[in-house]
Design a protein around this nucleic acid. Structure first.
Lengths: 189, 189
DNA sequence: AATTTCGTACAGTTTTTTCTGTACGTTCTT
DNA sequence: AAGAACGTACAGAAAAAACTGTACGAAATT
């Protein structure tokens, strides 16, 4: 079913509802650092009855194939969509990852984890260097006081990132679902 | 201590270390939907020995006061900085919220919660409407099949957002710190 | 009451991001 | 082997976001 062509009032009706949901999804996608239109694309794929090709996406979104290509890549990187293999078709097919819990945990594993680890690295290095300055200027009370304050702040920061790292661990391992269980799946599936 | 003026090599040394940390923090701040330069501003405030005024920030960042004003507002909205009252001073003073755990949970409470609730609302409405279409076109097997699939997807989505909502609850209540304590578990003998 | 000192609204400019069309390498079909 | 179909690199255009300077209202000082 096309989002643009209304064969009759049935299709127009379902299209209207879908459109609103797609736009809502797209609008809130900035939480994942994704542009509005890529979020829109995600919404489109969410409702697609079957995996879609780049050309189909472009037609529905009224956008260039190039944009679809980059949009899909962004979503692939975040594991929000998957590439699907279908024998007989030369085209690449994509569908959304319907397990949103997985999408959520993957997002933190991909984006946040990287940040956390790089930050911990820099912070550790900085503590070391400030420690060196501390011994180098130990005779200078004003300066060492300054250094001590900074070092204390950096230690606090590292402790926080350590916590964040462990939190993401519980996402990745699924342990988080012990504390916050998934609701039982809805009827029909 | 200024970030730009080096009174001597001591200050240059600590400045260099601080700068690297500030830039690291700034760079990773996009996870919170914050621009690089506002992240940079946050980093500056993080190291400030005392609350700063907009003019001081502008001087350190080599940016306009207007930009400082908007940057600080962004950080205030996310509760990443706090306004500080100091009698005797007419100027507004700001300092970072040093409790980063609080900052983390506030972030989800402010940004994610809003998304979650708006999404749940739209999804519920959409399910209702599709349910109406379902009875309206119950004689049309092809169409009802389509509707049923969509409704199932929407139910799945709502279940997920419900989970997310409950997860954010555990952030807000501090319950999350039972599962993931701030202190790393010490390996006992 | 007049003056100074704030913070920010607003319009215009600069910078960054997003989007498009063309071109090209690769893979499949013939 | 030649031709067609596919995805994407790349450069330029369009759109969005960030930044600045001016101006102005509010509050404190004189």
């Amino acid at each position: 079913m096309s989002l643009d062509q209304f064969e009759d009032e049935r299709d127009a009706a379902i299209h209207k509802v879908r459109k609103r949901v797609i736009e809502t999804i797209g609008r809130n996608m900035d939480l994942y650092g994704i542009s509005q239109s890529t979020g829109h694309l995600y919404g489109l794929l969410f409702f697609a009855d079957k995996p879609m090709t780049l050309d189909e996406m472009g037609r529905e979104m009224k956008m260039s194939k190039t944009s679809m290509s980059t949009g899909v890549r962004t979503l692939l990187d975040l594991k929000m969509v998957n590439k699907v293999w279908e024998k007989g078709s030369r085209k690449d097919l994509y569908e959304v990852e319907y397990d949103w819990y997985q999408t959520f945990t993957d997002f933190f594993d991909i984006k946040w984890r990287k940040s956390v680890e790089s930050n911990i690295l820099i912070l550790s290095k900085s503590i070391d260097e400030m420690g060196r300055l501390l011994t180098e200027y130990e005779h200078d009370p004003g300066f060492t006081e300054l250094l001590r304050k900074d070092i204390a702040k950096l230690h606090e920061a590292i402790a926080y990132y350590g916590w964040l790292d462990r939190l993401i661990d519980t996402f990745e391992s699924g342990e988080i679902f012990k504390l916050v269980p998934k609701e039982p799946p809805t009827p029909h599936s």
